Computed example of a mutant assay.
Amino acid sequence: MTIPTQPKVPPMPSNRAGSVIRSPAQITVSAVDPCSAEWDALLGAFPDYTIFHTSAWLATIQAAYGVRPVCVKAERGGRCVAIWPYLEQRKGPFRIIGSPLPGWSTAYMGPLIAEDVEVQELLGAFLEHRLFKRYAYFACRTLIHRHDVDLTPFGFELVRKFETYWTDLSRTEEDLWAALESRCRNSIRKAEKTGAEIRLESDAGFLEDFWRMSEETFAKSQIQPTYTREFCQQVWERLTPARHLHALSAFVDGKRAATLILPFNSHTMYYWGGATFQEFRNIPVSNLLIWRSILDAKAMGLKRYDFISSDGGPGRFKKSFGPQAVDLARHWERSPSRLLKILKDKYSAYLKRKRHIQAAQ
């Protein structure tokens, strides 16, 4: 079986080796070693880069799911004006590209583009390059905070919009406290009165408890956790040496009651994973834990705290911490074959049912 070919974007000439494509504006597109210091150095030129664009996070996905990271840059006049990481995997004869794929517990990715360049021209230069050719399915989540990234002209379908909540950490601690809803402040005080203690996790020993918490937390919705046990392990092993991970737990009477796993980069801390043991549900330790993590992020000199949307919307509980709602990302998908798209949709529905069935067992 052959992989269907893509509808062509406006063609641009290639050199004889085929390794670099140049647009009329002299945009050159080439691969970067995803494990190299060059990749992370390039990220620094893009203010909106996320922890999910970093080599440490790409290595986490690779180790947990056995996929191959590919990092691509676009240059003009010797200056890097855009980057686009993705990971690829094979399903039989089919090549699948994700930036990211659903199910990889990765909130954001997609291209990052300099502010002084034409977005559609750069997208065309990327998507005409051989590194972005011959795939059966391509999923991408783009950030729109600085650029209105529109993939529709390139045959992509807009599947979902993502809002999140941001807390501005430039505010004083007093202002952050005042911004909390009264019910949230009361819950924090209540947890403090119980003697709950917040500790920074320093080794991987907490992960066993975190996984059991996660199973209990998600079981309330009759589903399995959105992340795997192996992925949590890889997050710790890959991000801790890179100094990109902050993990906090709340202890009640010496027992671990709740845990937060919080990746961060040079400007943002991300509420990636949080869970609580059912036996401590009557104590609002989660409110205290999140409040402490916001203060920690501020003390670390970070600019914002991103609560991350898990299903397109930011959620009522997170809203109680007084953040700002931000329309931040778009999820796009493209498949050159209608049949493959139908099969993908059926497989996605099967996985969703499987999560519910296994959680109920």
Results as ranks from 00 to 15, higher is better:
289 L>C: 07
59 A>Y: 02
242 A>N: 03
127 L>A: 02
307 F>L: 13
57 W>Q: 04
91 K>A: 12
264 F>S: 11
355 R>N: 12
248 L>K: 03
44 G>H: 14
353 R>D: 09
187 S>Q: 15
49 Y>F: 14
180 L>W: 00
180 L>P: 00
170 S>E: 15
284 P>V: 03
188 I>S: 08
280 F>T: 00
25 A>K: 13
203 D>F: 12
359 A>H: 13
24 P>N: 05
340 L>I: 11
255 K>W: 06
40 D>A: 07
209 D>P: 01
196 A>Q: 07
169 L>M: 10
355 R>Y: 07
229 R>E: 14
6 Q>F: 01
95 R>W: 06
282 N>L: 08
97 I>W: 03
18 G>N: 10
188 I>T: 03
39 W>I: 03
265 N>F: 12
80 C>W: 01
18 G>H: 10
341 K>I: 00
206 F>G: 06
306 D>A: 03
268 T>W: 07
38 E>Q: 13
220 K>S: 11
60 T>Q: 05
296 D>A: 10
347 Y>H: 08
106 T>W: 06
53 H>F: 11
193 K>H: 15
236 W>A: 03
90 R>E: 04
321 F>R: 00
9 V>M: 02
13 P>G: 07
121 E>H: 12
57 W>N: 04
300 M>P: 09
164 T>C: 07
44 G>Q: 14
136 A>N: 02
20 V>C: 07
168 D>S: 06
93 P>Y: 09
73 K>E: 04
63 A>C: 05
131 L>A: 10
3 I>V: 15
9 V>W: 00
338 R>C: 05
160 R>G: 02
75 E>W: 04
302 L>T: 10
106 T>P: 02
254 G>H: 11
318 K>M: 01
237 E>F: 05
89 Q>S: 11
269 M>Y: 01
103 G>P: 10
58 L>A: 14
52 F>R: 05
295 L>Q: 15
307 F>W: 15
5 T>S: 15
333 E>Y: 09
331 H>M: 15
99 S>M: 11
357 I>C: 00
183 R>P: 00
203 D>L: 13
111 P>A: 09
156 F>V: 01
79 R>H: 08
328 L>R: 11
14 S>L: 14
282 N>H: 14
